[in-house]
C-alpha cells in the first residue's frame, strides 16, 4: 500500500473505533479530524511513516481501553471484590 492509502486507512479505522468512545463519538471525531489536519502538510515519507506508527499505537491504546472498560464493568457487577 502507498502512504496516502495507509493514511486514509488509518483515519477510517480510527473513525470507526471512535463511534463507541466513552466520551461520545463527536468528541473523538473532532479531535481525530484536528489531529489529521494538523499534520496535513507533512510530506516527507519518513515523517509520515512516523505519524502512521503513532496512529497504530493509538489504535492499540483504544482497543486496550475498550477491553479494560468492559472487563472492569463485568467484574464490578458480577464478582465480589476479593480481599
Amino acid at each position: 500500500m502507498d502512504l496516502r492509502c495507509r493514511v486514509l486507512h488509518l483515519y477510517k479505522t480510527l473513525y470507526y473505533m471512535g463511534k463507541e468512545y466513552p466520551k461520545g463519538a463527536q468528541f473523538f471525531h473532532e479531535r481525530l479530524k484536528n489531529a489529521f489536519k494538523r499534520n496535513a502538510n507533512v510530506t516527507e515519507p519518513k515523517d509520515v511513516e512516523n505519524l502512521l506508527e503513532r496512529g497504530e499505537f493509538v489504535i492499540k491504546e483504544i482497543e486496550a481501553l475498550y477491553k479494560l472498560r468492559k472487563y472492569r464493568a463485568m467484574k464490578q457487577r458480577y464478582y465480589e471484590e476479593n480481599k
Binding site: K12, T13, K67, Y71, K75, Y78
Partner: peptide, 12 residues
C-alpha cells in the same frame, strides 16, 4: 466465565 480469555476487537 469472565476470566477465560480477553475477547478480540472486531476490526473494520
Amino acid at each position: 466465565d469472565l476470566r477465560l480469555n480477553e475477547p478480540r476487537y472486531a476490526t473494520l
